[in-house]
């Protein structure tokens, strides 16, 4: 996943893109596997040697899709969700506020579906390392399998353990205790793991706790302030995604009582635009738009119908994901 290649090779995981909500992950094999979709059937073997980002036609040449290289963001969309996964924006905010970079040593609990783990590994590789803990045995095993397949195994140590009880210290691992740059907690009772986190952190390192409930935040912040943490801040981030596309826009051709040039010739009004408020977009749509403006009538009233490229917020938005609490560990002397 980290070595970006130009051409698809056998064994690669490729994202087949045919729409924002239609992305599939396939492993390219040199056999007769057929990928079936709404936009036709594709022989996977044919992808070998094809440049990433290419448009690939279906076997009957009627449909097409794009073959895209896998990255942690597409992975988090296409992976099979075993748990509630963290969303892209939360992941970005966590990685940034934990001050992660190539070389950081990070502790994470729990691993869950490995969506955040993958993003962390991408950021800290190759000099850093992620120690991730998952108390659910099957999930831990599944995560190891995914990390191996995605080629990031060497940057991640998955441990099946309840970190609240048994802590984060790993036997036989050098340069871990006292060298951890960041700790991320996604646990039902994060405050129970904070002493264990302190045991592996160094002066100036960062901690983040993700909790959906405010009561959890309350307890966590109390525990943090008692445990020599500073800069304790709790934030909430939500993404607002815009739906952007061409719309058929109808406007009535009416006399503009505030513009004398428009009152004389009504025909001209219907040919040009009467919609003075949206000048820039109007110009754009005639330049790039799909079709020419058409006139229409409602009773005796005339109007103009044309394609306009417009944007508005997507209706189905997420109202809450979780609260993010960040704090810096300041070692007391």
């Amino acid at each position: 996943m980290l070595n970006i290649k130009r051409k698809i090779q056998e064994g690669d995981k490729v994202v087949l893109y045919s729409g924002k909500d239609r992305m599939s992950l396939v492993v390219v094999k040199n056999d007769n596997t057929i990928f079936n979709s709404k936009f036709g059937n594709y022989r996977i073997k044919n992808l070998i040697g094809v440049e990433y980002g290419s448009k690939v036609y279906s076997n009957d040449e009627k449909g097409f899709l794009h073959a895209i290289a896998l990255n942690p963001e597409l992975w988090s969309i296409t992976l099979d969700h075993r748990t509630q996964i963290l969303f892209n924006l939360d992941i970005s905010t966590i990685i940034f506020n934990l001050e992660l970079k190539n070389g950081s040593k990070v502790v994470e609990s729990g691993t869950g579906s490995g969506s955040l783990s993958t993003s962390i590994a991408r950021t800290v590789a190759p000099l850093g390392h992620l120690y991730t803990f998952e108390f659910h045995k099957e999930r831990a095993e599944h995560a190891i399998r995914d990390f191996t397949e995605n080629g990031i195994k060497q940057y991640i140590t998955v441990t099946h353990r309840d970190a609240c009880v048994d802590g984060f210290k790993l036997e036989n691992v050098e340069g871990m205790v006292g060298y951890i740059d960041a700790v991320f907690l996604d646990l039902p009772c994060p405050w129970e793991a904070i002493d264990n986190a302190v045991a592996v952190m160094h002066h100036g390192s960062m901690l983040c706790s993700f909790s959906p409930c405010i009561e959890q935040v309350q307890n966590t912040c109390l525990k943090l302030s008692e445990s020599s943490f500073q800069e304790i801040t709790t934030i909430e981030v939500l993404i607002r995604t815009y739906d952007t596309k061409y719309h058929k826009v109808e406007s009535m051709d009416l006399v503009n009582p505030y513009d004398s040039t428009n009152t004389i010739n009504n025909e001209e009004v219907s040919n040009s635009s009467s919609n003075t408020d949206e000048k820039p977009q109007q110009r754009q749509s005639t330049k790039w738009g799909q079709s020419k403006p058409q006139s229409f009538t409602v009773g005796e009233m005339k109007g103009t119908k044309k394609d306009q490229f417009l944007t508005n917020v997507i209706k189905e938005s997420r109202g809450h994901t979780g609260y993010l609490t960040f704090a810096r560990y300041i070692k007391e002397e």
């Binding site: 895209i68 924006l89 934030i235 981030v237 993404i239 607002r240 995604t241 815009y242 944007t311």
Partner: peptide, 21 residues
């Protein structure tokens, strides 16, 4: 290009204090 998305972020900070959150 594909997967084109325009987005913005709504971000809010919290005061977390016992009984005053």
């Amino acid at each position: 290009a594909v997967n084109l998305n325009i987005s913005e972020i709504w971000m809010r900070e919290y005061q977390v204090l016992p009984k005053r959150t």
